[in-house]
Design a protein around this nucleic acid. Structure first.
Lengths: 214, 214
DNA sequence: CACATATTCATACGAACGTATGATTGAACC
DNA sequence: GGTTCAATCATACGTTCGTATGAATATGTG
C-alpha cells in the first residue's frame, strides 16, 4: 500500500510535515500551484523528495494542507472578534483590524485562496466550509446592528463581502499599491493608516442613512 | 532570425492572432499561466503549435498580449465615465456600473490580473501603466467631489481602491458567492442587485460626515 | 507567370515535471 | 538483542512541457 493518507503521524515526522507546509506555503503563494515544483518545496524544507508523497499522498494533498493551515487562524480570529463584547460597529472595526493584522503576517494567504477560487469554479468543500464560517460570523454582527439601529439595513451577505473584500484586496494588490501610490503595507505605520481608512469607510458605509429619524 | 516580435501583421495572420488571444484568455483565466499548455491553446484556437512562437515570440508574449487586450477596454470605459458630465457621485456610480458590466462580459479578467500580481512582486510596466491610468481617473472624480463638498475628504488613492475593489472582488469570488450565498452574478437581475448594493455602500461611504454643517 | 514574403505545419529536442519503487535508517517495544 | 514499523533517501520511469527547426503552403506584387 502506498500510504495515500497520513500514517499514524505521531512520531518525529511531524517536523518534516511542518517544514513542508511552511515551505509550500511561501512557494505556492509566490509562484502558484503549477508554478511550484515538489523538488523546490522539498529542497526549501530540507526534506527528501519522497517526503511529500509519503506525508501528503500527492502535491495536491500538500496544497490542501497548506490552505487549511493558513485559513484556520484567520477565521478563528474573526470568530473571536464576532463573539466579543461591545457595540456591533466596534466589533466590525476590530474584524477589519484582525484581517489586516493576520494578512500582514501571512500575505500569501489571499493568493492561495484566490488561486483556488480562480482555478476551477467550485472551490473544495474544505475551503467553502471555512469561508462560510467567516461569512456567518460577519452576518451575525451585522444583524445585531440592525436590531439596535446602529447599522443601516441592507443585503446581509453583500454587506459582509463589502467589508471583508477591502483588507483582502488591498493585501493582494500591495505590490501595485506600492508601485503606483507608494503605499507600503509592510510598514506598520502605513498599514495602520490604511486600516483606519477602511474602518472609516466601512463605518460611513454602514451608518444609518443621513436624512432619517432620531 | 526567429521573429521574436510581431512581423508586419497586415495579412490574414490577424485571424490566427485573434483566435490565439481568445483561446489563451479563457484558458489562462481558468487554469492559470503555468496550468495552461501552448498545445491546449493552439488546439482550442484551431491553430498550429508553432503559431504561438511565430506570432508572439513565446508563451509569455502571448500572455502579455492577452492582458493588454483584456484590460484596455475596461480602463477606457472607466475613462469615459470619468470624463462624462454630471455630479462626481453619479459618475462614480457609473464607474461601478462599468466595472460590473465589463467584468460580467469577461469575468476571466480579474483572474488574469491577479495571477500577474500574485506571481512576482512587480507587475510588468505595461499592466502598471494601465492600472495607473485607472487610478488617475478615479482620483480625478474624487478630487472634484472634494471641491464641491459632495464627497468626504480622505486618502485619495485608498478611496479609489475601496471603490474599485468591490466589483473586482465580487467578480473573482463569484463562485464562492454562489456556493455560499446563492448569489449568481451571471444572472442580470442579481447582478443589478449586487451593483445597487455596491453603489449604495459607496455612496454612503463617501458622503460627508453626518454631524457636520449645512 | 514568377518571385518574395508571410504564414502554416509536422516533427524533434532537451529539460523539468509528479510519482513510484525499493533499499536503508532509526527508534520503540518485548 | 531481535523485531517492527514509521520515516528517510537515492534513483528511475513515463509524461508533458516550451521552444526550435526546416520544409510546405498561401498570399500578394511586379
Amino acid at each position: 500500500m502506498t500510504t495515500t493518507d497520513r500514517p499514524h503521524s505521531t512520531q518525529r515526522g511531524a517536523e518534516t510535515r511542518a517544514a513542508l507546509v511552511a515551505a509550500a506555503t511561501s512557494l505556492f503563494a509566490a509562484r502558484g500551484f503549477d508554478g511550484t515544483s515538489v523538488r523546490d518545496i522539498a529542497r526549501l524544507a530540507g526534506a527528501n523528495l519522497g517526503a511529500i508523497t509519503y506525508h501528503f499522498g500527492s502535491k495536491r494533498g500538500l496544497y490542501e494542507a497548506v490552505l487549511q493551515h493558513g485559513l484556520t487562524p484567520l477565521v478563528e480570529g474573526v470568530g473571536a472578534a464576532a463573539k466579543a463584547a461591545g457595540k456591533p460597529m466596534e466589533r466590525l472595526e476590530s474584524v477589519v483590524d484582525v484581517f489586516f493584522d493576520h494578512l500582514s503576517r501571512t500575505p500569501e494567504l489571499p493568493y492561495l485562496l484566490l488561486q483556488e477560487v480562480a482555478a476551477g469554479k467550485p472551490p473544495p468543500d474544505q475551503v467553502l466550509a471555512i469561508l462560510r464560517r467567516n461569512m456567518t460570523n460577519l452576518r451575525g454582527i451585522i444583524a445585531e446592528g440592525w436590531e439596535d439601529g446602529s447599522i443601516r439595513p441592507g443585503h446581509p451577505m453583500l454587506t459582509a463581502v463589502s467589508i471583508a473584500c477591502q483588507p483582502v484586496y488591498m493585501t493582494v494588490m500591495a505590490p501595485v499599491l506600492k508601485a503606483i501610490g507608494g503605499i507600503d503595507l509592510q510598514n506598520p505605520a502605513t498599514r495602520r493608516e490604511v486600516s483606519d481608512h477602511v474602518k472609516t469607510f466601512v463605518r460611513a458605509g454602514l451608518a444609518p442613512s443621513q436624512e432619517s429619524h432620531s
